[in-house]
Every structure is written in structure tokens, then in C-alpha cells.
């Protein structure tokens, strides 16, 4: 019988397989380089109460597209687009306006994002400070810190970067959903 163990061909094959395994593993577990989109952060269903006839302007801060490790973050622009779309869809306010032109100004400050660096299931935790002010008087009518989290698994996306984006968008989507649900219960 011919002994093949330890031949140069085997060593080459093993090293190629090892590199392939490393590349696939890196793709699977690491997340980087995609930005959370407003489409992914716009809720499709709402638990809102009464519909309000007032108008609102929206301001978002504290966000960024990517962090220093190249991980997905939520940019101010994308979160604002998602929030505006959600307000329109849910009817929480009659319509949205630019800046301080409306009856109310809703400011959302993204204070923290907890994201994993590696893993199979990615859980992203987010905290945003929501403040609703009456424009005419500058009075703060409601202020609350809203915490949300979302987990994306390999069943949602095999590639780590996509999985992290989905988890981040999910956390943003739930934050918007919870915030609007609370606003809809206010007597404005």
C-alpha cells in the first residue's frame, strides 16, 4: 500500500483548507463595514394610542455611521429618516416639519450602543434619550431614556457584518417603536 501521509501535496492541501476555514470563520464571527439603514429601523407595526393633530419637528444626535473598529453604528441621518417615516406611518403626529417649525420638537440623543466584536448570536443594546418640547414655550413636556435590544442569529444572516447590521437595526427599530408608543399616550 502506498503511504501518502506527510507528502508535500497533503501539506499544501491542508494549509489551503486551513486558510479557507480561517476566512469563513472570520466572515462568520466578525462584524464590520456596513451602516444601519433607515429601512431596517422603520417599524412596521405600532402600539400607539390616540392620534395627535399637532405637528412635530425631529432632531437626532449622538449617532455615527461606523465605529473605530469598523462596526455598524446608527447615523443621525438614517435614524432621523426612520423616525420621520414611523411618525407618519403611525399617525403619532399629524405631520412632520423641518426643525422648529412645528408645534413640538422631538429630540433623540443616542447615548450608548453596546455591540459585540465576535460571536454567533449578536445582541445589540441601545439607549437613547427622548425629549419632547413645546416649541412656543420651550417647555419640556416629556423626557425619558429608552433602552432597547435586539439579537440576530446565524439564522438571520450567515455573514457576521450583515448579522451585526440586522441586530443594530433591530435595536434602533425597537427604540423608535417604544418611544412613539410612549408619546402616543401623552395628553398633548
Amino acid at each position: 500500500m502506498r503511504q501518502r501521509d506527510g507528502s508535500p501535496e497533503d501539506a499544501t492541501l491542508i494549509s489551503k483548507l486551513l486558510i479557507l476555514f480561517l476566512c469563513v470563520s472570520a466572515l462568520m464571527v466578525a462584524g464590520c463595514c456596513t451602516t444601519a439603514t433607515h429601512e431596517g429601523m422603520t417599524p412596521t407595526t405600532f402600539e400607539t394610542g390616540a392620534k395627535n393633530q399637532k405637528t412635530v419637528g425631529v432632531d437626532v444626535g449622538g449617532g455615527k455611521e461606523l465605529d473605530e473598529l469598523g462596526r455598524t453604528r446608527i447615523s443621525n441621518e438614517e435614524f432621523k429618516k426612520a423616525l420621520l417615516a414611523a411618525i407618519t406611518k403611525s399617525g403619532t403626529f399629524s405631520r412632520t416639519v423641518e426643525g422648529k417649525e412645528g408645534d413640538y420638537l422631538l429630540s433623540v440623543m443616542i447615548f450608548s450602543m453596546e455591540q459585540p466584536v465576535f460571536g454567533l448570536s449578536f445582541t445589540v443594546k441601545m439607549e437613547a434619550g427622548w425629549t419632547l418640547k413645546r416649541v412656543a414655550t420651550g417647555e419640556t413636556v416629556w423626557q425619558e431614556s429608552i433602552k432597547s435590544e435586539h439579537t440576530a442569529t446565524t439564522g438571520d444572516a450567515f455573514i457576521g457584518a450583515t448579522r451585526l447590521r440586522l441586530a443594530t437595526e433591530g435595536a434602533g427599530r425597537k427604540n423608535i417603536s417604544q418611544g412613539l408608543a410612549k408619546i402616543s399616550k401623552l395628553s398633548l
Binding site: L69, F111, E127, G129
Partner: peptide, 18 residues
């Protein structure tokens, strides 16, 4: 690290280092 209002839990300031 987040500093919070002792009554409402609302963030007053936040800092982050990586």
C-alpha cells in the same frame, strides 16, 4: 460611563473610550 439623573434615570452625560 453614563451619569444619570437620580430621579428620572435620564442620562446627563456620557463618555466612552475604546
Amino acid at each position: 460611563i453614563i451619569f444619570r439623573d437620580p430621579k428620572t434615570d435620564f442620562p446627563l452625560a456620557t463618555g466612552n473610550s475604546l
